[in-house]
Nucleic acid binder design. Sequence first.
RNA 1: CGGGGUGUAGCGCAGUUGGUAGCGCACCGCGUUUGGGACGCGGGGGUCGGCGGUUCGAGUCCGCCCACCCCGACCA
Length: 478
Amino acid sequence: MSEQKLPSRTEDFSEWYNQLVLRAELADYAPVRGCMIVRPYGWSLWENIQGALDRRFKATGHVNAAFPLFIPKSFLEREKAHVEGFAPELAVVTIGGGETLEEPLIVRPTSETIIGHAYAKWIKSYRDLPVLINLWNSVVRWELRTKLFLRTLEFYWQEGHCAHATHEESLEETMRMLEIYRDFAENDAAVPVIAGRKSQSEKFAGALNSYSIEAMMGDRKALQAGTSHDLGDHFARAFDIRYLDRNNEQQFCWTNSWGLSTRFIGAIIMVHGDEQGLVLPPKLAPHQIVIVPIYKNDGERSEVMPVVEKVRATLGDAGFRLKVDDRDMTPGAKYYDWEMRGVPLRIEIGPKDVAKGTVALARRDKPGKEGKSFVSQESLTGAVAETLQDIHASLFDRALAHREANTHDPKNYDEFKQVVENGFAFSWWCGRAECEAEIKEETKATNRCVPLNQPGGEGQCIHCGQTTKEKAIFGKAY
RNA sequence: CGGGGUGUAGCGCAGUUGGUAGCGCACCGCGUUUGGGACGCGGGGGUCGGCGGUUCGAGUCCGCCCACCCCGACCA
């Protein structure tokens, strides 16, 4: 139970985040540096994220499977850019059963290579395509600087791996999954995102092109919240994933991969959280509603609890995820506790409500009296459904307004430097890696993506002045 | 991997010139309480981050190591 106030979100965002994660009981530090324990409340949130994504994956023809944790070192080495990108952050097993291994095993940082090995065996004919497989697992990347959910040595995610007959189909799949991420982020998590293409220096190691959804956090920094990679024929060539086409000719496959991780929980925290703690989007919250019974003595208790039970049954039958908090604490303490944990809606039922046939409804996104209303027990189910929808909409609107208010179109590079100190710059960019690198060097801001939605026309690169047709989002990022 | 900081009960901290460890919160029990963080009484809990050294005696002094957090370079 949390007793003290959180550090100020506006004055010390980082410390606010750290303590919020611990006090909301989402996660805890593990005994190994950089590793995290996901606590039941955090995992429950992840399960709801999994459910929301998995439904979408299944609806688009994907199936789940499991691949090994260990990958032969030689596999990684088969794709040059891939191994170069991941080498610095690999965990390597050299001893097994007390014996030094003949070939060291990599603890998977991602599964493209071992997938490539399997797909090469499984795919013989154009009739075998496409292969649409998703994995729910964890991967290990030996990061130097870690933060709960945002960057840990081991993290949980899903990785989809698809093989297609043509590049067009593979690219179409890449974009379909990016759109699924966007749809999930905005419609389930109420996190507005910018879908775009990563620059060549920011793309996945081994990809032809990477695409991402980028979100703005409460401190105006960017977070890559999901990625989808067009792997071209790179991994197909490295692992010899080939098929016989209709003309009986050998062709290389075209593959793609896409992932979204527990980092997304960090996004939810940093986009919606407030001074009181976590604020969860209703569609993903482990408990959408918490019911707090109020009574002064056993007499009142015996009046209140049957009504609490009736409301619980009614709302439970209507499909809401809810919890009755019957702990032996004062109601006020419970309010603070559930506010810390971000429960979207609180229902208070006391003797006055029993007498009047009402309940008190308090919404998490609007603090104090502003968010509190009294609703008759008869019309509660409808009111709850409506309010939860409204909370989702207002969370999304608030986050979008925040991003728009902090996204600028600077007139020149001096202005650009100012802007990226405290938000996003949406600027013309020549597309050259040198320009991007210099901007990063000079401002600490990175190229987040080239949004798919472009204004059209042309302009001058914000850094070098070269004429270009594309605008990119720049900002400081996690 | 560089710079900074912190390690004493679950958390936050105190601990004097070295003398054998305490406070608040949390936790457990009983009672009174309960519409925005209740109160009283009683109780449990510590190899003082680790190893070594100085000393009759180390939480305290010295050395080495470790862990975690923050800031930079790399990343979902």
